Amino acid sequence: MMSHNNLTEQELLKTILEPLLEDFQYWFSRSRHLLETERITFLSVEEQEELLERVKTTQQEVQTAKLLFEATGKQAGVDTRALVPWHRLVAECWQVSMKWRSHQQENPPTA
């Protein structure tokens, strides 16, 4: 019975955590690209730099978690105390990205 429970936990980690870590990597990569290549005019330079630094730091945390997950044969989880701030940062980046796209549509570059 014990091994069945462990298998279930391991499958749960593989089914949920693995794609979640990949999603975090994807969204932080997109956010980092936007923040490094565009001037987000509704943020101050300092705010944009601070957001970029938080994205870079969190990217490293996610990469470390993914490496540990892989190194343990997909048996190590991630504490929800780490996941919650990552999710909040993704949500913050989505808001910035949506506002930036909206701002770009309302104020197209002049040629």
Rank of each mutant, 00 (worst) to 15 (best):
T41Y: 02
L17S: 10
A82P: 03
M2A: 12
L51I: 08
R88D: 03
I40D: 00
L17V: 05
A111C: 12
K56I: 00
G77Q: 13
A82L: 10
S31L: 09
M1W: 08
S102W: 13
V84M: 10
C93D: 06
L68G: 12
E70N: 11
S97G: 09
N6Q: 14
E92H: 14
Y26D: 11
K74C: 12
W86C: 01
D79V: 10
P19F: 01
A65M: 10
W94Y: 11
E61P: 07
E9A: 13
L89Y: 01
E36C: 12
G73R: 03
W94V: 09
L68C: 12
E18T: 08
K66W: 05
N5W: 07
K99V: 04
Q25D: 00
M98C: 10
W100T: 12
E11Q: 06
E46W: 05
E92A: 15
E18G: 09
K74V: 05
P108R: 12
E38S: 12
F28G: 03
E38F: 05
P108K: 13
M98D: 04
Q63F: 03
L83A: 05
R81H: 06
E18S: 11
D79N: 15
V84C: 06
K66V: 02
A82E: 07
T57G: 11
W27T: 09
R39S: 04
L34E: 00
V84D: 03
L89S: 07
M1G: 14
L20G: 09
L13H: 11
E49R: 15
L51K: 15
L7E: 06
A82C: 08
T37D: 00
K74G: 08
V84E: 03
L17H: 10
R101P: 03
